[in-house]
Design a protein around this nucleic acid. Structure first.
Length: 290
DNA sequence: CTTATGACCTGATAGC
DNA sequence: TGCTATCAGGTCATAA
């Protein structure tokens, strides 16, 4: 579920609430959501491997460290300790990182896989009903970037027209598919791909490599504006997304095409089209988006 | 190399 | 009420 804006809201929430706090202990309820050193990089649920996961110890999950920074690239997150240790996190479709205040318990939360307790009594939980998300353990930030983050394209929130032009150059896929491809640019998912294409007035079925320079420039502005606006509204809470304290984001009400197939275009009043493109539901205005 | 397809999971909702 | 089918914000391995 969460795309760049939602992940950024989580990042900010974690940093605001937990920076400087020391991790006292961790409880792992479900080992397979964690990719340890030596485990298949794609994660256990996808690998089909019959190997056993490598043994984890608490130190790999930052126990004893102070949380110093929370990093993000695209939809990827990482919790960085003050001693160089780091844990990568990806929320998949339904993953959440939630902070519980000292004494606060939420027995209603199911599917909690990892539970950290801080010295100040606060808790951080990773829960994920569908388990498409997970945690990744790396030696340090450099290794994490080398092993995972460097495979991603430039962060969509700050991508430049030149970078986007390079990302789309020669692509023989639809614009929609290219926007969803994290190796080209990192952070755009199904919601914001449609929103950005509408904002830029580009047909999502267009061949991505066929955009002219002026169109790439328009698309760059559109992507950045759409993502920034969503962050300011606290993200899109459709189904599963909530902030670190369980709060709802209001960006959903600002969507102009996503989820509005068959409804009137906010620009021209024509009926918005809905179809499958790149195996994802896609909504666009066939009048406004050439 | 690039691109397409299934697989991984649970839960909400619509239709019978 | 209860069943089945469909759909959901995302990757990842493998096939073509």
């Amino acid at each position: 579920m969460p795309e760049l804006p939602e992940v950024e809201c989580v990042r900010r929430g974690l940093e605001a609430r937990l920076t400087g706090a020391r991790i006292a202990s961790v409880r792992v309820q479900r080992r397979r959501v964690i990719v340890g050193p030596g485990d298949p990089i794609g994660g256990w649920s996808r690998s089909g491997s019959t190997r056993r996961p490598t043994k984890l110890d608490d130190a790999m999950l930052l126990v004893g460290a102070r949380l110093e920074r929370v990093l993000r690239h695209g939809k990827q997150l990482a919790l960085a300790g003050d001693d160089g240790r780091i844990v990568g996190a990806h929320l998949g479709m339904t993953g959440q990182l939630r902070v519980l205040a000292p004494g606060e318990t939420d027995a209603a939360l199911g599917h909690v896989h990892v539970w950290w307790i801080f010295e100040n009594g606060a808790s951080l939980i990773f829960r994920d009903p569908r388990r498409f998300g997970g945690l990744w353990i790396h030696e340090d930030e450099r290794a994490m970037r080398a092993q995972r983050w460097n495979a991603l394209g430039p962060d969509a929130l700050e991508i430049s027209p030149g970078e986007l032009e390079r990302a789309l150059a020669g692509a023989r896929v639809s614009l929609k598919a290219a926007l969803l491809d994290q190796r080209r640019l990192a952070g755009v998912g199904n919601i914001y791909a449609d929103e950005a294409a509408f904002e830029a007035r580009l047909d999502p079925r267009r061949l991505a490599g066929s955009l002219r320079r002026a169109e790439v420039r328009r698309l760059t502005t559109a992507i950045r504006r759409v993502l920034k606006r969503a962050i300011e509204r606290g993200g899109s809470s459709m189904r599963d997304y909530v902030g670190v304290a369980g709060e709802i984001g209001s960006a959903t009400s600002g969507h102009r095409v996503y989820g509005r197939g068959g409804q009137p275009c906010v620009r021209c009043g024509g009926e918005l089209r809905r179809a499958m493109l790149a195996q994802r539901t896609t909504v666009w205005c066939s009048t406004c988006q050439g």
